[in-house]
Amino acid sequence: MHTTDDTPVIDVEGLDLVYGEFHAVKDLTFHVRRGEFYALLGTNGAGKTSTLEVIEGHRRPASGTVRVFGHSPWDRNTVRPRMGIMLQESGFSPDLTVAESVRIIGTLTRRDDDVDRVVDLVGLTRKARTKVSQLSGGEKRRLDFATAVYGTPELIVLDEPTTGLDIQSRDELWDAVDRLRESGTTVVLTTHYLEEAQQRADRIGLMHQGVFHREGTVAELTGALPGVITFGLPAPPSAGVPALPLHVERQADGTFRVETHRVQKDLHTLLGWAEDHGVDLIGLEAGPTRLDDVFRAIN
């Protein structure tokens, strides 16, 4: 059971980030509430990681204010014991073992936990005594996650956490995140796997070229765009496609695509037509707009 309340955990107001001549983030404002799962999505170079790095205290903005738990993110002593960070890229000491790395980084978070529990949580128990230099990329990513969730922080920032992970490891990671949420942890995520955000995020901030393109729940973001029905017909088609309220597009692969705000009604019409004419619809799919479509609509 995930609960959210209006207590602000992250407050970003009018954030501007500039790298030399490049204006990476422009006047960005958003807030994350306690217990919320907030996904920051966007195109490559949209400014997601730069924004997170300000929240994490790794970057100084050109202007604007950022508060984490009401404090400056650069006040590490106050903020970091309450905050776990999984960076998009970061390293370990190659000659230390998995267990040693978790123990050392965990100690530095000033949170209490059991090293064996955390190592087990990310499925690295068998590698606990293995040197970091001998881990695969996916195993290092899991170790990364272990240090971020050590001590069950109140806030966890995950910057592309599942990149490089196999399916099983991804599932395990999300199971662990779900358990954290049950204990009230607030989650901020960036990812290129949109289905991960679509399944879990309470709200999504969609960034493009340093600004918010849109912000809202998945339903709010996808609701404005039509649903989609796709199907194929046996060749050659024995009859024309019934007149639907929206244009039926014939796609390059020969299938048909219908974009409609009345998916159920139009699907009923299509199925009725197929029944009446004895046509088997091939590969019939119907559904609401996915986040992918919202994403594509940015450009």
Partner: peptide, 12 residues
């Protein structure tokens, strides 16, 4: 290898 960045992500 970005270990310094990791350390700066902690409370120290």
């Amino acid at each position: 290898n970005l270990f310094l960045k990791r350390l700066r992500s902690t409370a120290i």
